[in-house]
Simulated scan of single mutants.
Amino acid sequence: MTASSLLPSASSLLLLRRHALPVGRRSRPVAPVRALSAPATLTQDDLKKLAAVKAVEYVSSGMVLGLGTGSTAAFVVAEIGALLSSGKLSDIVGVPTSKRTYEQALSLGIPLSTLDDHPRIDLAIDGADEVDPDLNLVKGRGGALLREKMVEAASDKFVVVADETKLVTGLGGSGLAMPVEVVQFCWKYNQTRLQELFKEEGCEAKLRLDDGGKPYVTDNSNYIVDLYFKTPIKDAPAAGKEISALEGVVEHGLFLDMATAVIIAGKDGVTMTTK
């Protein structure tokens, strides 16, 4: 796979401005950059590719990188692999957040390691399932939330890439799953407790199943209980603490105050918001 194969056709490319990645303050969102010519209709995958390519601009030779999991993160990993293959990047070490990402990165010739050997990561790049106005996230619909949170918490900078469909006014607002990883022992007990915890938000808790109808098992041999909210979570930090306090809960998909920058690709261009 080459870097050029990751991009939409020339008629639909959007010009991406280069920006430094400031840390420690919130800047105004970058104005969308208009298409060079009237673009063809961009698919969701096209938008993910644009955001991924923009994020990889912040990768420098010699970095230790956290490699995310999911459809958008796969474009990031592919772009890094292409730049390594072409010689435009060198001396990269990747710390993958899932077996799936490990296998993809290995196939692309990206040198890999673990948090045990590289406990400090220069930059992590990953997708998100929801992004709120404060750059808080829901992640983990791909099933890798525990490893993602461990790697991204160990990173000096965490850049999120997503398309505009992931924007919400409040976490849980998409009505899609907010995952909670739980131990297999008495999972139903925790499913009931999680649903009761958020009854005011009209929460429905469901055990995640695989394509064969059996319980989905994470890379850490746990189950996932997905929470579906009828209204957004009222207090995400408090919700995260309450979930984590339940015995048998391993991790939850609320990634709060972790993102350094969020790159969003929309049909009119690419925007970036930083903290």
Rank of each mutant, 00 (worst) to 15 (best):
A51Y: 08
L50T: 07
A74T: 15
V33C: 09
R28D: 13
T43W: 07
R120H: 10
G109R: 02
D117H: 06
L47F: 05
P39L: 05
S12T: 15
L14P: 01
L137M: 10
L36W: 12
R141P: 05
R120Y: 08
T101A: 03
K48Y: 02
K54Y: 08
L89V: 03
L135V: 07
D126Q: 11
L146N: 08
D132Q: 05
G109N: 02
L42A: 06
G127I: 04
L50F: 11
R141N: 13
A52N: 03
A40V: 09
S9W: 01
R26F: 12
V53W: 10
S37R: 15
G70F: 14
A144H: 13
R25T: 14
D117P: 00
R25I: 13
V76R: 03
V53C: 08
V76Q: 04
S85I: 00
L137W: 10
I121Q: 00
A51P: 05
K48D: 06
L145Q: 11
L42T: 04
G143A: 14
P133V: 15
V95Y: 01
V138D: 02
I92Y: 03
G68N: 06
T69Y: 09
P119M: 01
V138K: 04
P29S: 14
P22R: 10
K54V: 06
V56Q: 02
V56E: 02
V56S: 02
R17I: 02
S9V: 11
L84A: 04
P96E: 02
L16D: 12
V59Y: 06
L112C: 00
V93C: 08
T69M: 12
V138L: 06
V56A: 05
G87H: 09
I125S: 01
G62N: 11
V53S: 08
S98D: 05
L123H: 07
M63C: 05
E57N: 12
A105N: 02
P39C: 04
A82K: 03
I110T: 00
L108Y: 04
L16V: 14
V138S: 05
K48P: 04
L50H: 12
L84R: 01
L65M: 14
A74M: 14
G62M: 12
L65Q: 04
V56F: 03
H118D: 00
P96T: 04
G68K: 07
V76S: 05
L14R: 11
G127T: 06
T41V: 13
A105E: 02
I110K: 01
S9M: 07
G62Q: 10
F75D: 07
P119R: 00
A51N: 09
V33D: 08
V30D: 07
D117S: 10
V95K: 00
V76W: 03
S86A: 15
S9F: 04
E57K: 06
P22M: 06
L21T: 02
D45G: 12
L36H: 11
L135I: 09
D116W: 01
Q104F: 12
K54M: 09
S71N: 15
H19M: 01
Y102V: 10
A73H: 05
L146R: 09
V131A: 02
I110R: 00
L146G: 05
V23A: 12
G66T: 09
H118E: 07
I110F: 01
A73M: 06
S113R: 00
S11H: 10
I92E: 03
